[in-house]
Every structure is written in C-alpha cells, then in structure tokens.
C-alpha cells in the first residue's frame, strides 16, 4: 500500500528547476534510499515533502490525503518526521528536553494542566518522560543516565546525529526521512547506525526514506534505491541494478570522451 506518493512534482526558484516532473512512491514498511550526485535536488526533495517548499505543480499524497501546502508542523502531526543534513538540535536545551519537546504534537496539556497541577498533567509528563528515556535508550548507553540533563551542545558529532534521529522518532511518525544519517561518521559508527536503521523498521515500524552518499550503507539496508539527477528520477531498483545502470554511472562520472585527443 502506498504510504507516500509523489505525482509529477515540479519545483523551481530563482531560475533553477530543482525538481522536474518527479514521480516517487514508497510503500509501508519499506526502506528506500535516494541517491544522486550533488545538486540533484535531494534536499529540495525532502523539503518539499515536509512542507518547507511548495511545488509549482504536481501533488504529494500521504496516506491518501494531499499534503501540498500544508504547514510543516501539521505535516509532522500527520506522521512525517525528518532529520536535518546539518544537524540542527536545540543546542541549549538538555538532551532529554530535546526529545521531550519533540513529542509536542502527541501531547495536549496547555495552560490549565500545569497551572493546577492536575492529574492529567502529571500523568502526561510522566509518560513523556518515559517515552523519551525509551527512545534515548535505543542508542545504547550514550545518551542516557547523567547525560540526559546536559545541554545538547556538549555532544560529540556522532552523538548529535543520533540525537537528531531520536528527536524525529519522538514525533511518532509513520514515515521517517533521514537526511544523510551517517555523514561524517567513521566506519564503525556508520556500521552501527546502519544496523539501527534496520531496527527502526523492524522494531519500531517506521517506513524510511533515506538520502545518503555512503554506498555501503545504501547497499546494506535499502529495499530499493532511487537515483535522482537534475531533479528527475533516472533509475530505480535494487542496489545492484542501479549501480550497474549506465545512466547512473554517467550521472556521477560523466560520459567518457569518444573522440581520441
């Protein structure tokens, strides 16, 4: 069943066409990787899905409802969450608070609860806390314990990426968009995160779209690979099919010169 379907979406600004008549779909429970050379439109792709950019034409359908033009926070509410390529945590908030605040759209208490310390309020706070710990625990021992009370900016780079993912998990999405999750990590960290991504699907039930450059990760975890270039899909299929597709090779490496010098 199609969880997300992108129909013939075109988006251009400043004279550049970032996405051109793009078609894309992902089924529930899939892990799809989106790859392509720099400038192919991958970040715009994510921005369009999450509502930070509005297509000039075309439609995006999530769970049988169009989400074009919907505000970003409403899109998250409907069940799409993302991480950012350049990690954008809330640096001065504690690690725990970063994960707690991401549960905002799944909780309801407003003014009366905290002001009168109602039972509903206390229960909700406890639940938020419990869930935050559970999510942070997914990453092993790195982000729990005394660390939870530390501000997010003390974290190492790899831990920041993990916290990014934890935050996205906390919004209880159905569809998780990971923007270059292993960028900047060393091979050991990448391998570990690859396994975690698999568990995100198997244990937590997320459908995942991942933009990545690291082909090892792409190969190890994807069900399907989609290749973008100049805003269009130029190939899709399994990793093996795609990596041997001449059009893909040409997009990355260019066509060899036929005429001898």
């Amino acid at each position: 069943m199609n969880l997300l379907k992108i129909n013939d979406v075109t988006i251009s600004f400043g004279g550049i066409t970032a996405l051109s008549h793009l078609d894309f779909h992902v089924d529930e429970g899939e892990i799809v990787s989106v790859i392509g050379p720099n400038g192919a439109g991958k970040t715009t792709f994510f921005n369009t899905i999450t509502g930070l950019a509005i297509p000039n034409s075309g439609d995006i359908i999530f769970e049988d409802r169009s989400i074009v033009g919907i505000e970003p926070n409403e899109i998250t509410n409907r069940g799409i969450a993302r991480t950012f390529q350049n990690v954008r945590l809330f640096p001065n908030m504690t690690i725990l608070d970063n994960v707690k605040v991401s549960q905002h759209c799944r909780s309801k208490q407003l003014l009366l609860g905290p002001l009168f310390n109602t039972k509903a309020f206390r229960e909700e706070e406890a639940e938020i806390h419990r869930r935050a710990e559970e999510i942070l625990g997914f990453f092993g021992t790195r982000l729990i314990g005394y660390r939870m009370q530390q501000p997010a900016f003390v974290l190492s780079y790899a831990n920041r990426r993990r916290l990014e993912i934890a935050r996205a998990m906390a919004t209880q999405p159905k569809l998780l968009l990971l923007d270059e999750p292993v960028a900047g990590m060393n091979p050991i960290e990448s391998a570990e995160l690859t396994r975690l991504i698999g568990r995100l699907r198997s244990e937590w039930g997320f459908t995942i779209i991942m933009v990545e450059h690291d082909m090892k990760v792409v190969r190890d975890v994807s069900d399907r690979v989609v290749v973008l270039d100049h805003g269009e899909t130029i190939a899709q299929g399994s990793y093996e099919e795609v990596s041997s597709d001449p059009r893909v090779i040409e997009a990355y490496l260019g066509r060899p010169k036929e005429d001898a010098s």
């Binding site: 600004f13 970040t43 930070l52 950019a53 509005i54 033009g69 505000e71 350049n86």
Partner: peptide
C-alpha cells in the same frame, strides 16, 4: 544556516484562523 525554503503563498490563502 537555513536551508533554501520556498513558501510562496498568496496573501489571500487561508490555512488556519
């Protein structure tokens, strides 16, 4: 830095109250 976000909307569009 902010990613290039483009929300061009008509001023008469009503998304919410």
């Amino acid at each position: 830095m902010a990613s290039t976000t483009v929300r061009r909307e008509s001023v008469w569009r009503i998304n919410n109250w």
